[in-house]
Simulated scan of single mutants.
Amino acid sequence: MELEKKLGNKGKTISVSEDVSVTILDEKLNKLLKRIELELYIDHIRSGTPSRKDVQKIVASIYGVSEDRVIVKNILSHYGRGSSKAYVHIYEDISLARLVEPRYIFKRLGLEQ
């Protein structure tokens, strides 16, 4: 499985810009659904909550996959703290994602009209 080779980033902190850093809190391989399930902590003290598209680009660059295979489930901001948690799935194939994920998620990410 191609995704197994991409694991091993749990606990790493990646500085995205001067104002934003991402820490990978949890990383699981779901063999049945052929996806990686991520829990991210995003520190954005001097800026607003990053958009789904921004998180999608960041995760795609960290894991070296195309952006259309990255599905951002949700981003939960902590009030008054300048930090958020994000839950993300990375699929081996976008056709698998279309079978499992709700259609509105694709609309939010701009992957479907």
Rank of each mutant, 00 (worst) to 15 (best):
residue 30 N to H: 13
residue 30 N to D: 15
residue 31 K to L: 12
residue 32 L to S: 12
residue 32 L to R: 15
residue 33 L to C: 02
residue 34 K to E: 15
residue 35 R to F: 04
residue 38 L to F: 11
residue 38 L to W: 10
residue 40 L to N: 03
residue 40 L to Q: 04
residue 41 Y to S: 03
residue 41 Y to I: 03
residue 42 I to W: 06
residue 43 D to E: 13
residue 44 H to K: 09
residue 46 R to T: 05
residue 46 R to E: 07
residue 47 S to R: 15
residue 47 S to C: 08
residue 48 G to I: 04
residue 48 G to Q: 04
residue 49 T to D: 00
residue 49 T to A: 02
residue 49 T to C: 06
residue 50 P to M: 02
residue 50 P to Y: 08
residue 51 S to P: 01
residue 51 S to T: 15
residue 52 R to Y: 15
residue 55 V to P: 00
residue 57 K to Q: 09
residue 57 K to L: 05
residue 57 K to D: 06
residue 58 I to V: 13
residue 59 V to I: 12
residue 61 S to E: 15
residue 62 I to V: 14
residue 62 I to R: 12
residue 63 Y to V: 02
residue 64 G to W: 13
residue 66 S to D: 14
residue 66 S to C: 05
residue 67 E to H: 08
residue 67 E to I: 10
residue 71 I to P: 07
residue 72 V to C: 05
residue 74 N to K: 14
residue 76 L to E: 11
residue 77 S to G: 01
residue 77 S to K: 11
residue 78 H to I: 08
residue 79 Y to H: 07
residue 80 G to V: 11
residue 80 G to C: 07
residue 82 G to I: 04
residue 82 G to S: 04
residue 82 G to Q: 03
residue 82 G to M: 06
residue 83 S to E: 06
residue 83 S to Y: 02
residue 86 A to V: 06
residue 86 A to C: 06
residue 87 Y to P: 01
residue 88 V to L: 02
residue 89 H to P: 00
residue 90 I to F: 08
residue 90 I to M: 06
residue 91 Y to L: 01
residue 91 Y to A: 07
residue 92 E to R: 09
residue 92 E to F: 03
residue 93 D to I: 11
residue 93 D to C: 07
residue 93 D to N: 15
residue 95 S to P: 02
residue 96 L to C: 00
residue 96 L to F: 12
residue 97 A to I: 10
residue 98 R to S: 01
residue 99 L to R: 15
residue 100 V to N: 07
residue 100 V to K: 12
